[in-house]
Nucleic acid binder design. Structure first.
Lengths: 339, 339
DNA sequence: TCTTATTTCGAAACCGGTTTCGAACTATAT
DNA sequence: ATATAGTTCGAAACCGGTTTCGAAATAAGA
């Protein structure tokens, strides 16, 4: 491993000057710069990020806090799409991404501890369970954070307009003639889930539709399985709805499966609207009508905000609400006879 | 930021002794240890990983090299499933995961350079294009690598038995009575893709079936779109096959869509076998019969091998071939009249 | 030619840890 | 009381960089 000292020795200049070359200081003669650069190339020199971080206190590393209660981690398509777009702008600005976990090496430690130990410059957090005390601990710290899909006054936040999404979905179903509209929630205890329920309820009220208790089924996770179970529950109702607004595409997939098993055809016998617009929703049959979140924008915008906040921690906290839109495909049909 | 020097000052012991406490040296009196631990707690001490790495030359960081030519990055379900399981064992052993990219900060740099700069202890690589010269550069280096879905004598390798998978698929279709079996390849230029084609060809030969040129369609990427295009090409054939073995589930989704648009019912008019067993393949209609790779095993095994290799770089290179299995679902039907 | 201003460079301290090796101190054996 | 063994601790060098500030060298101005 060659160091700036090796280069200094070889060229006859001091380590100081060598360091200056790699940091684009102006007080070094151009010819000197060339000599040093040349020597660096010959010796195969790579700057040591750890040594640099030690003095500068900047690691050029962003922590990714990404945990789902369901435990499937990176596999969730919505989250991974966001992170992918986040990564692209972060890398372009010179940052590397590092996963933050608790319990590293089998030792109970917590997110904040690991962030401190690793010296990350900032953290982007996407959790399904924001009640985690270890997350709170991180929020309370001085580490710049941008948190997605959640609302808090302690950090920059970024989330889709879940509320509006629900309105769009229900109003669309209404416009097709549906009056008995049920809702499969993604968990009232999650931020997005509760917003979506609220949006559903408001929409129903606005449209003068009765909001029955039994028409709202809470499913614990955004998984296919729980969507299946929730739909089964709805199908057992004596007064079956003609349409179901489902708070997530994965849930919707499970719901569609349940309906199919019960012999219901979609959209003929039952209309379904999802939420998220995951890639596959357009390829299933029938293609899923859903509310699209702009994952690419969410990721890139989050990176912009976080990096700004790293550069200037005194920045006022931003709270960005991203627009959603209805994507009409084939999983809904109009109701002719409104019983 | 409190350091071991702060703790030393507060307790009256030397930085050496403080350091020893955190490194579990035995030559420190138990009472001393308690005093120092107590002081550390009070001062809110976190060890500085960068400083530690600087002297020990070990960063407890594993680089993740994960690029797809299609550019969708982490979103690919197969790859992200593998990484997720990799991450779990790596974290349990005390490592953090860091994404390695080239062109950091807009500067053309390459994978090796970034690995060297960041001082990662090892790298797990999953690429779709293993011809990348920057990847070769990394392979030629002294950094421990484990590469997935590829074969090379320069690193530890790990891949599913693609060849066997093809045999299973074709033999299964044969057992259902199919004789005209086509193949949509995932790209003859990828390692897995070529193995799958070879397996297909061997199976056909073994079963005494004619391997027509036109029955093998090469699709550039493992995307839904290219699966769609490839299937269209097959459906344009005058002598249409009764079954298609598709080299990837995503491709299969596109292929099914194409067939459906052409008015063909699956499995009645056309049988399809996929490859990968992505989560969604069981939820589409008809549920996809496919060849399953053991992604969890691949990830955890890869982590085991890499970490062993980090601990002892002189280890002989391992090349692990993981078993695959046929998962029968609803996308294939038996052929009664073999024309 | 002598100031003065501008370039160009380097000594030295510092960042926060680790590790070797010897010294001092305590306990045990003779 | 003395020799020996075992325990406990710390001085100092080192890891590979950055940065301040002053000095030397060179160029410009009078």
């Amino acid at each position: 491993m060659t160091t700036i000292y090796d280069i200094a020795k070889k060229t006859g200049y001091s380590p100081t000057t060598v360091s200056k070359v790699f940091n684009n200081y102006t007080d070094v003669k151009d010819q000197t710069r060339q000599t040093i650069l040349q020597a660096a190339k010959e010796l195969g020199y790579w700057p040591n990020a750890h040594a640099r971080t030690l003095t500068t206190k900047k690691s050029w590393t962003i922590g990714v806090l990404f945990v789902e209660s369901s435990g499937i981690g990176m596999q969730h398509p919505f989250f991974s799409a966001v992170i992918e777009s986040f990564k692209q702008v972060a890398v372009a600005k010179g940052y590397a991404l590092m996963f933050i976990s608790k319990d590293v090496g089998g030792k109970q430690s917590g997110y904040l501890e690991n962030c401190k130990i690793r010296g990350v410059d900032g953290v982007v957090v996407i959790l399904s369970d924001y009640e985690d005390p270890y997350f709170k601990e991180l929020l309370d710290s001085d580490i710049p954070c941008v948190v997605l899909d959640y609302e808090t006054s302690q950090a920059h936040t970024l989330y889709s307009d879940n509320f509006e999404g629900s309105l769009l979905a229900v109003e669309y179903l209404y416009s097709l003639g549906h009056r008995k509209i049920a809702h499969i929630s993604g968990g009232i205890n999650t931020f997005a889930g509760s917003k979506r329920v609220q949006g559903y309820e408001l929409a129903m009220t606005r449209l003068n539709l009765e909001t029955k208790e039994s028409y709202i089924v809470d499913s614990a996770y955004y998984s296919i399985e729980s969507g299946y179970a929730a739909m089964m529950q709805i199908l057992d109702l004596q007064e079956r709805p003609t349409a179901v607004f489902v708070a997530g595409d994965h849930l919707a997939l499970g719901a569609m499966r349940a309906a199919r098993e019960r012999g219901l055809r979609i959209p003929n016998d039952l209309s379904i609207v999802g939420f998220d617009n995951i890639e596959l929703s357009q390829y299933i049959t029938p293609a899923l009508t859903t509310i699209a979140q702009d994952t690419a924008l969410m990721g890139s915008k989050a990176a912009d905000i976080l990096i700004q906040s790293i550069d200037d921690p005194s920045q006022v906290l931003e709270s960005v609400v991203l627009p959603v839109r209805l994507i009409v495909r084939d999983s809904c049909s109009s109701v002719t006879n409104t019983t």
